[in-house]
Design a protein around this nucleic acid. Structure first.
Lengths: 342, 342
DNA sequence: CTGTTAGCGCTTTCAC
DNA sequence: GTGAAAGCGCTAACAG
């Protein structure tokens, strides 16, 4: 592999000159620039990114930490989309993406910290939202550059981009109310996630705001899987006064709920309405097609990356927060009284 | 940030000693090892991965190239699984994963080559299988270390791990035949992919082997999307003598086919049988649940990574190929004559 | 077992 | 506009 030295010799200049034409310095005569370019081509020279990093003290890489605990099967549809979003901005800045993803949260935390501390990455985007994750405290204390997709409950000075989950819960529930349902239950995700807490809050808000009574037995927690959604729904249907509509905090769980309802012989949306969250591809493929609140995953990625780029370049230090809205998508599972049709 | 030099001073040793304890050399007294460890801890020292890479001439990172052309929406379920597989072996070897993924195949190729040439990654795993992709020729000519998930048609000396797609096509078709169907059509993916070609071959083999006649009009190409599957199926159903079973080369297309069939008023599996490929989560969630041939995606990732690790460590030079079998998963869409039940 | 000494390939003052 | 020289932080012979 030829080095800059080789190129310099061949072009009859010094290495610093070669370095300059590579980095696009303007204080270089067009002639030498040409000569150097030619030499690089002839030698098939490609600058060594590692050496460049060492000298310039920037890795040119950012880390993406994807929480992938077993419950997070839902991450499947989320994952490629955030990456697309992130990638779309990183590539403009010439950054690479290092992926950190393990089944074990401990390992994940260790790897994230290690990647940052070893200077392998300049910063990180973390997708997670556990109610209390020691990772963030470490990150903040060590003054690492990072952006969270989700949000933290503690008032740590953290930059994040999140979707407005309280509103998401509110919109979904409100839609069911407007569609004419009256006994609305919620199947929430594990409460160790902030996102779950937020959506529950939105649900409660819509319920009480509509003058309905919040019933404890109408709120059940489940994992993010289809099976747990089905189980949860079955329990709800077995109540003395079963709900006539179900808001599941995730499409996958919603699909489980749909199954439970159908199995029990009830009709959707006539007897029971259902709405999920995400607008997973699954939602439109199901029969009946699932109403849902669409989350702008691609955009979450875009903004997380943009903010991180700012943190890295402008040396920005004030944390920046950003909240993106969801969009109601009405399909077939939620139009009991024909008020809506999709 | 403290460096090795700082640690060395504090521990009263030389930098090479520090280096040795870091790399776990055995020719080191327990005492000094302790002393150095203590110094590292006190200074909160973390070795600089970039510097280490420069000196040792290995990046400690491998690239994963994920083809994500628009047609490849199906990559959604594929993607996280391969990564899990790859990650499970990389982490054992202390390697990191750099993700290369763009919508534009040109850019993708450029980035892949750049990452390798700039020594940012030691090797790469490429998921793609276009019939003729110039990338592979380059990779081979430049003697890059890489493993393909999929396979190439040209006889380039390439290491790859693939699933046995001819067999997959054969199994699916054969199953339909055994289930009692007689007019079996195939909806294939775009023929620019080797995988499509292979599955078609398997389909033809099963057809002719069963003494049936291969009918041109029963083989239609589609993209990998649901819509294109639905369109393709509609065309098939409009034939003078429509098929009584459909083998779709992918679950997503199969779901489209199912929709077209149901819309046309036919029953599944009584009137028309359907089988897909992949065992996408979608397959088990659909109603009727989709019969399919399961592809061992996680394992593909595992083996690709293992082979790459060998290439990198043993300096292995002989390309290694590996072919993994699929598994028939019979569900509800393919048991016309009650021969099968799932 | 441990220290000395060269680099790894590039960036970046600081001169001219 | 261009060159010389001093690192960036670590590894890896080579001595001893």
């Amino acid at each position: 592999m030829p080095t800059m030295k080789d190129v310099a010799q061949r072009a009859g200049v010094s290495v610093s000159t070669v370095s300059r034409v590579i980095s696009g310095s303007d204080r270089i005569s067009a002639a030498t620039k040409e000569r150097v370019r030619a030499a690089m081509k002839e030698l098939d020279f490609h600058p060594n990114a590692i050496a460049r990093s060492l000298a310039s003290k920037t890795a040119g890489t950012i880390g993406l930490v994807v929480s992938r605990s077993p419950e997070n099967a839902f991450a499947n549809s989320f994952f490629p989309e955030v990456i697309r979003g992130i990638g779309s901005v990183l590539s403009k800045h010439g950054y690479y993406l290092l992926l950190i993803m393990t089944d074990d949260p401990e390992v994940e935390r260790a790897q994230t910290l290690a990647a940052l501390r070893s200077r392998r990455v300049d910063g990180a985007i973390v997708t997670s939202s556990r109610v209390s994750d020691p990772l963030f405290r470490h990150l903040v204390e060590e003054k690492r550059k990072f952006v969270l997709i989700g949000r933290v409950l503690d008032d740590l000075p953290v930059s994040y981009v999140d979707n407005d989950n309280v509103k998401v819960g509110y919109m979904a529930t409100r839609h069911l109310i407007e569609a004419g349902y009256r006994r609305i239950a919620m199947i929430s995700g594990a409460t160790e996630y902030v996102v779950s807490l937020d959506r529950i809050e939105g649900y409660k808000k819509a319920i009480t705001e509509a003058g309905m009574e919040f019933r404890k037995e109408y709120l059940v927690n489940a994992g993010f899987t289809r099976e747990s959604g089905e189980d949860a729904c079955r329990k709800l249907l077995a109540l003395e006064e079963p709900p006539d509509a179900i808001f599941a905090a995730d499409d996958t769980m919603a699909s489980g709920a749909v199954r439970a309802i159908l199995k029990s012989g009830l009709r959707i949306p006539e007897d029971v309405g259902v709405i999920g969250v995400n607008d997973d591809p699954l939602a439109s493929m199901m029969r009946p097609a699932l109403s849902t609140v669409r989350i702008p995953v691609f955009e979450l990625g875009v903004w997380a990356a943009r903010i991180l780029m700012d943190l890295l370049s402008n040396g920005e230090t004030v944390p920046r927060q950003m909240v993106l809205p969801g969009t109601l998508v009405v399909r077939e599972t939620s139009s009991a009284r024909g008020l809506f049709s999709a």
